[in-house]
């Protein structure tokens, strides 16, 4: 079984000294959570809300991706499929069916989850690098579907998606109103992932990451656990994509393209695989970088590649992982 590579070799902080703390947060994590919530509340008054909404959508996307790589040890190289598909369905629901934004986002997330059921069912048959190649290939299939399907609008995408009114009552045309909804979705998703990781189910996931044959021998049906984690991750990625398409009023092929799958890997890697706050920080770094370097064209790709190489060679723990190691806490 050359396939069952030991995932423990991934630079993921060990969870041996897991203290209970409050709601599964350690003291350091509570402080970090406080900083995060304070940032969510204060930042829209200081920074451009549309930029922040983009950042939060990608942060949720990266957290969803991290659920798989960080806690089950599965590297999905096709998460753009769920992100993009969630975006398309939410856009279609809001524009063609005239549904309210929260229902559209739920539809987007559910569609991505269904897609995750099928893709996960096929992909979990292999581990390690094969899993990465299979998810990449399946995502490319979804990409070609989106190029051809009539409802996605092909190269044009779905444009002019209305933001609508939250619950049909609160109009979201103002950026600030929209921001609070996006911040709420992000925080809910973030806490949900944290809850999943710290549930008994999450403990089994981590045991699969550390030693899958042993988890099997203890009587866990590891495939079921992995599939469930895949579906959860796909659903949350879909919610992130759906929120993004409602915010920007547009859903395009960019969000289903393989380069988007690469970007979410990069965000998580920069922030720190298997850390709670890493994906958020990583997403913030990459989105900010893309924003400032947008006029540099293809050099952005080169810089992203350089960051990839640098992270793999020198900073495998990522920013938050390194910070945690420095302060000797788990973040």
């Amino acid at each position: 079984m050359a396939d069952t590579t030991s995932i423990t070799a991934l630079a993921i902080p060990d969870h041996a000294k897991e203290s209970d703390g409050v709601w599964g947060f350690t003291r350091a994590q509570l402080v970090a959570l406080g900083v995060l919530v304070a940032f969510l509340v204060v930042s829209p008054f200081v920074l451009y809300p549309v930029f922040l909404m983009k950042l939060l959508c990608f942060a949720l996307f990266a957290c969803a991706f991290n659920l798989l790589i960080g806690y089950v040890g599965l590297l999905s190289f096709g998460h753009a499929a769920y992100f993009g598909m969630g975006g398309y369905l939410a856009g279609h629901a809001a524009k063609a069916w005239g549904l309210t934004p929260e229902v559209s986002i739920i539809i987007g997330g559910a569609t991505a989850g269904l897609l995750g059921v099928v893709a996960g069912w096929i992909a979990i048959r292999r581990q390690g690098i094969y899993f990465a190649m299979i998810t990449l290939a399946l995502a490319q299939m979804v990409y070609f579907f989106c190029v051809q399907a009539p409802f996605t609008g092909g190269e044009d995408g779905i444009q002019a998606i209305p933001r609508g009114s939250f619950l049909g009552l609160f109009p979201l045309d103002q950026d600030m109103a929209m921001y609070w909804m996006v911040a709420g979705i992000f925080l809910l998703g973030f806490l949900l992932i944290h809850r999943i990781i710290h549930s008994p189910y999450g403990q089994v996931l981590k045991s699969i990451r550390e030693n899958e044959p042993r988890a099997t021998s203890l009587g866990y049906r590891t495939d079921d656990y992995k599939l469930m984690a895949f579906i959860l991750s796909a659903t949350l990625a879909g919610v992130a994509g759906a929120t993004k398409s409602i915010v920007f009023g547009i859903a395009t092929l960019t969000d289903v393209h393989w380069s988007m799958s690469g970007e979410v890997v990069l965000m998580t890697l920069v922030g720190g695989l298997g850390t709670v706050f890493g994906p958020v920080v990583g997403a913030a770094v990459i989105v900010t970088m893309q924003n400032y370097l947008a006029e540099m064209g293809a050099w952005v790709t080169v810089i992203q590649g350089v960051i990839f190489v640098a992270c793999v060679l020198a900073f495998r723990r990522g920013l938050i992982g390194e910070l945690g190691a420095l302060l000797k806490v788990k973040l």
Partner: peptide, 14 residues
């Protein structure tokens, strides 16, 4: 872990 080789070569490809 083999996955790092995949990530590194992906970065090189970019």
């Amino acid at each position: 872990d083999h996955l790092y080789g995949l990530l590194l070569t992906f970065g090189l490809a970019l």
